[in-house]
Structures are given as structure tokens and as C-alpha cells.
Amino acid sequence: MTRNRVRGRLPAVLVLPALAGLAFLLVPLAGLVIKTPWTSLPTLLGAEVGEALRLSLICASLATVLCLFLGIPLAWLLARSGLPGRGFLRALVTVPLVLPPVVGGVALLLILGRRGLIGQHLDAWFGISLPFTTAGVVVAEAFVAMPFLVISVEGALRAADPRYEEAAATLGASKWLTFRRVTLPSVLPGVVAGAVLCWARALGEFGATITFAGNFPGETTTMPLAVYLALETDPDAAIVLSIVLLLVSVGVLAGLRDRWISGPT
């Protein structure tokens, strides 16, 4: 009874654009699904697809971990420190969102490449060269995806009540313990949401990856790269690869959601 009454009150001004928005997001996907050559699916799914998929999942997950390690402290710095010029820093953090990913890849090459500002020393001193390696893929994906995490966590931190941190201090907790045991758990939904966005962005990342890490099967060819190259010669294969990537990512996110994000309902 109650539910029906509430539903009846939903204003059309909101519902119609909402449905249009949903259609806008889903119809292109539907197009992909409809065009999928289901019958030839098994022949198109070779070992290379499995390899690319595995690489994609591993790299996106590692990139997310890297983003968590660097992004949460950065979000904390932006949200809680009295650092001067925080507004400017916050704007800078979003640069990778605005930058065309290919440009991001070039920027990474200029810094971390074999002849890059830092990369040349890494190469000379430690023999480490990131381009054309799986580590390079992780770096490129993390570069592009980190803003999602930072923005999400920073928003959660700014919304969190800092008095809980004071309460922890009066209970004898050091700043670090307070951060770990009080602040972080209280912004966990924001961290999870940010990590999910970050992971999804990393999984779909193409431009920065191929520019910085190149494309070599088994090393740096992730699913989006495989999709792009398949598109050059065999659009059907590209559609199949896209569907596989789509299904796996939706599956993983749905699984995570059930497990980690308990909604308010």
C-alpha cells in the first residue's frame, strides 16, 4: 500500500528524463549485443582473447591497488590538511580526466620513458624501463584512473565529521591509528565507490596504455587494445571482444556490489 502510494507520487518531470537517460546509456549496448555473431562466438574466442582478458583484469586490479595506495593519502591531503593552494591542487588532480588519454600516454613517456626525465635514470641506474612492459600498462591505467578514486574519497572525507577524529584523539589514538581505525572505515563506501570507478576506468583504458606501454600480445595487449586492433580487420571479432569485456566487468562489479556495498535499503 505504502509503496504504491510513494510510487504514484514520482513526478513525471523526473521520471521521463530518467528513462531517457537510461535508454541513452543502454541502447548502444543493446546494439552491441544484437550485432554479436553468437554462432561464430566459439571460433572467435581464441587463446589470445583469454590472454588479453586475463591481462586486462590483472592490470586493472593492480592499477586500482596502486591508486588506493597513492590516492587515499592524496585525497586525505586535499580534504584535511590546511595546505595552501588546495583548490588549485584539486583542479590539477582532475587533469588526467580532461587530458586526452593519448596525450597522457605521451606525457608519461616524457617522464618515465627510456629517454624521459625520470625514466632515463631508472634505466641507467636500475635497468628498469617501463614502456612495453606489463608494469607500464599498470602505470598508464593508474594515471588515467586515479582521479576517479581521489575525487570520490576526497568527497567522502569532506563529508565525514572530523569530530570523530577528535574523539579518537581523546581516547589516546595517534593520528595514524585514527586514520586507519576511524577515518578510513567511516569513508569506506566512498573508497569502495571510488575503487570501482577506478577499476572500471582502468579496465577500459586504451589511449594512454597503447601510447605508453605499447601493444604486444601477452605483455601489454589488454582487451581494449585487442578490440581496437580487431576492429581494423574483423569488426565481428571486435564486437565479440567488447561483449566479453562487458560481461566480465559487469559480472565482477555486480559481484562486488552484493558483497561489499550494502545499500541503505
Binding site: V106, L109, L110, G113, R114, R115, G116, P131, F132, I210, T211, A213, G214, N215, F216, P217, T220, T221, L225, Y228, L229, E232
Partner: peptide
């Protein structure tokens, strides 16, 4: 024995001109 198989000529040239 390539290290990377680029998606287009421009991408290849970027890597050459940057000395990668």
C-alpha cells in the same frame, strides 16, 4: 623481434621521435 605492435603509424612515430 618487436617490442610493441602499434595501432597506427603516428603512434609508431611518437615512440621513434621520443627515442623509446
Amino acid at each position: 623481434a618487436p617490442d610493441t605492435l602499434e595501432q597506427d603509424v603516428k603512434a609508431v612515430l611518437t615512440k621513434v621521435s621520443l627515442g623509446e
